[in-house]
């Protein structure tokens, strides 16, 4: 049986307590929420914390508030993915997020995995998400214990891929994340939470706790999320497309198109979004936007499927998402 290495497990009851524990543990400490990302990684020794600080007992992180007429929706980072996608206010007003959450892994895993955990999901790569012995056989990789990124051996950086389903949606929706550190609390726009680096993939400081996600009020916008993968369950995305559109009397007033699982961060493609602003999403506009999103979509050979096909599917998925939004245009 694949087992966890020994560690000390701490169960704070408040964020403040958690922060103190993390300060005490220093670099040896890590937070855990649902455990569905960290524990498999620990079993394969991607992460080797000596102290694991559970955020699961902090009630404040499990709340969903607001989201009614004109107010933003606040979702605690500790809300499970099941709670997230079944919550009526999320399902009704923020269906793209509900959909993304519902598409994560499996029903059983979603009972454990949290929204915050999915946002902070460790970047993935099929040279990295392997057992210690497997990685030893390729002399490890840059992301852990090794020197070289096998996806691009001459590259100075790690190309592990952001494989979160909810992250691209938060970027598309323009969500803000509440990060609480020992000394300050800060509000970070989703787009600035992620970094284009497979190793240092978050701007969050390791001691900070992601406590809350704030989603903008409902206001004539619509959004959707499409996920590409081999199987309808279990699998991480090999491509995700999140699209947000602000409507103004049948015209696109503003838009964001975000690609998931093709880079180390949810990749916004403003050049594609620009093309649809001011349009009614006519076929040729959609086609142009799909082509514009296709160009910068640069998946690497580190997930299921070949990268050429994944790149090609970007066009189909952007087209599909835009068509979907057109059919349920909000005036």
């Amino acid at each position: 049986m694949l087992r966890l290495p020994p560690f000390t497990y701490l169960q704070p009851k408040s964020v403040r307590q958690a922060l103190r524990m993390k300060t005490d543990a220093g670099a040896n400490g890590m937070y855990v929420a649902g455990g569905t990302d960290l524990y498999p990684n620990m079993k394969r020794r991607h992460q080797e914390p000596k102290v694991v600080i559970s955020l699961a007992g902090i009630r404040a992180l499990g709340r969903i508030t607001g989201g009614t007429r004109g107010s933003e929706l606040s979702v605690g980072a500790g809300v499970t993915l099941t709670e997230l996608h079944t919550h009526p206010r999320v399902r009704n007003g923020y269906s793209a997020l509900a959909r993304a959450a519902e598409l994560v892994s499996t029903p059983v895993l979603r009972n454990m995995g949290t929204f915050g955990g999915n946002i902070c999901l460790d970047t993935r790569c099929n040279y990295y998400n392997q057992t210690y012995e497997w990685r030893k056989a390729i002399d490890f990789c840059m992301k852990k214990d090794g020197e070289i990124c096998w996806v691009a051996p001459s590259s100075p950086r790690c190309w592990a891929v952001n494989s979160s389903d909810t992250a691209p949606v938060t970027v598309a929706l323009g969500a803000e994340f509440v990060l609480v550190g020992p000394d300050e609390e800060r509000l970070v726009p989703a787009a600035r939470f992620f970094r284009d680096d497979g190793i240092n993939y978050l701007t969050k400081h390791p001691h900070e706790v992601l406590t809350e996600v704030r989603l903008p009020p409902l206001d004539h916008w619509d959004a959707t999320y499409w996920k590409l993968r081999r199987r309808g369950s279990f699998d991480f995305p090999v491509l995700g497309v999140a699209v947000w559109i602000k409507w103004d009397g049948g015209l696109v007033a503003d838009a964001r198109i975000v690609l998931g699982a093709v880079a180390s961060y949810p990749k916004e493609v403003p050049e594609a979004a620009q093309l649809i602003i001011g349009s009614e999403l006519e076929d040729d506009v959609i086609e142009a936007a799909a082509a514009a999103a296709y160009k910068p979509s640069k998946p690497m050979d580190n997930t299921d499927f070949g990268l050429a096909w994944r790149k090609e599917m970007t066009r189909n998925y952007v087209r599909g998402t835009l068509q979907e939004l057109r059919t349920r245009r909000k005036d």
Partner: peptide, 30 residues
């Protein structure tokens, strides 16, 4: 449709996906 015992010939002939996640066994949905 999907199951495949794949190797990386250029990387020490290592199995590409020795895991339940990456070896694609159909779920109820397939």
């Amino acid at each position: 449709l999907m199951e495949e015992m794949a190797y990386r010939p250029n990387r020490n002939v290592i199995q590409k996906m020795p895991s339940m996640l990456e070896y694609k066994s159909p779920t109820t949905l397939e």
